[in-house]
Amino acid sequence: MATTKHILVALVEDKPGVLNRMASLFRRRGFNIESIAVGHSETPKMSRMTFVVNGAANVVEQVRKQLDKIVETVKVSDITGDNVITRELAFIKVKANSANRSEIIQIVDIFRANIVDVAPDSVIIEATGDEEKINSLFNLIRGFGIKEIARTGRIAMTRGGSGPLPVMKKPPRTQAKGQKKATK
């Protein structure tokens, strides 16, 4: 079955081993996690994780249900294809000298990125954006000579509304789905 990119967002308790438990469910099926981002959420002692994985839709849905079963998990949503904003942050350390520094700065400006460090032989660019934006910036800068690159992995959020992740309520998602199916 064709694999597609999926963005899974999880609200979990901030406890040791939670990331391990979640990652292990992907590993078991041989999924490569393309990116992962973890940080505090709006609720104290709760973290929000964003996973980007490649997989067949039915397999990802099965993994999502199993992630949902982990005791520390509040809720896991597959927000692929929803009206979502995704962003990542990248640091790019690029070779630069007095001759080409201004050219680099011009490119950085076009991408509304920042120079956060200047050294005699290099600069560090800080860029935020979706995957494509970071990739095209990287492609333009590459000619100058990349020394090092670090990317955070994507974070994602659905636009408008109250969001897909109510904290305390866990609606019977499977049933609601089945219900729709059965009426067809």
């Binding site: 099965q62 249900k65 949902d68 019977p172 998602r173 499977t174 049933q175 089945g178």
Partner: peptide, 17 residues
């Protein structure tokens, strides 16, 4: 009782968790 079992191995027309 386990929602993760629904539709795991065979197609299910009507799940009741």
């Amino acid at each position: 009782i386990d929602p993760a079992e629904i539709g795991k191995n065979v197609r299910v027309d009507m799940p009741i968790v």
